[in-house]
Simulated assay, not measured.
Amino acid sequence: MAYNKNDRRSRTKGRPTLNEVAHRAGVSPITASRALRGVATVAEELVRKVEEAARELGYIANPAARALASAHSQSVLVLVPSLANQLFIDTLEAIHSVLRPKGLEVVIGNFHYSREEEEDLLRNYLAYQPRGLLLTGFERTESSRRMIEASGLPCVYMMDLDSGSGLHCVGFSQVNAGAAAARHLLSRGRQRIAFVAAQLDQRTLLRGDGFRRTLQQAGRYDPAFEILTPRPSSVGLGSELFAQLLAAQPQIDGIFFCNDDLAQGALLEAARHGVKVPEQVAVLGFNDLPSSAFMVPRLSSIRTPREIIGRRAAEQLLDLIAGKTIAEPVQDMGFELVLREST
Rank of each mutant, 00 (worst) to 15 (best):
K5V: 14
N6Q: 13
D7L: 14
R8P: 00
R15N: 14
R24V: 11
V27C: 04
S28E: 05
P29N: 12
I30H: 07
T31C: 10
T31V: 15
S33C: 05
A35I: 14
A40Y: 11
T41G: 05
T41D: 14
L46V: 11
L46E: 02
V50E: 04
E52N: 12
E56H: 13
E56A: 14
E56N: 11
G58Y: 12
N62Q: 10
R66A: 15
R66C: 08
A67T: 12
L68G: 13
Q74S: 15
V78W: 06
V78N: 09
V80F: 09
V80W: 09
S82F: 11
L87D: 06
E93N: 13
E93K: 13
E93G: 04
I95C: 04
I95A: 04
H96G: 10
V98Q: 11
P101F: 07
P101K: 09
G103W: 00
G103I: 01
V106S: 07
I108H: 08
N110M: 04
Y113F: 15
S114M: 06
E118R: 12
E118H: 10
E119L: 05
D120G: 07
D120M: 12
L121F: 12
N124H: 11
L126G: 13
Q129H: 14
P130M: 05
L134V: 12
L134W: 02
L135E: 08
F138L: 10
E139W: 06
R140W: 06
R140S: 13
T141Q: 11
T141I: 13
R146I: 03
E149W: 05
L153H: 04
V156N: 05
M158G: 08
S165D: 01
S165R: 05
G166R: 08
H168D: 09
H168N: 14
S173R: 03
G178Y: 09
G178M: 08
L186M: 15
R188S: 11
R190G: 04
Q191K: 15
F195M: 08
A197S: 15
Q199P: 00
Q202K: 08
L206N: 05
L206Y: 00
G208F: 07
D209T: 14
D209P: 00
G210L: 12
F211H: 10
D222H: 09
P223F: 03
A224L: 13
L228V: 04
S234W: 00
V235C: 03
V235K: 06
L237V: 00
L241P: 01
L241W: 04
F242E: 10
Q244C: 01
A247Y: 02
A248Y: 07
P250W: 11
Q251K: 14
Q251P: 02
I252F: 00
I255N: 09
F256M: 02
F257A: 13
F257W: 12
N259L: 06
D261L: 02
Q264F: 13
Q264E: 03
G265M: 01
H273G: 00
H273I: 15
G274A: 12
V275F: 03
V275W: 05
V275I: 15
K276L: 14
Q280D: 08
L284T: 10
L284D: 01
N287E: 04
D288P: 15
P290T: 05
F294W: 14
M295R: 06
T304C: 11
A313H: 01
A314W: 03
E315K: 08
L320C: 05
L320R: 02
I321H: 08
A322D: 06
A322E: 02
D332Y: 08
D332G: 07
D332C: 07
M333G: 00
E336A: 07
E341Q: 15
S342K: 10
S342M: 10
T343K: 09
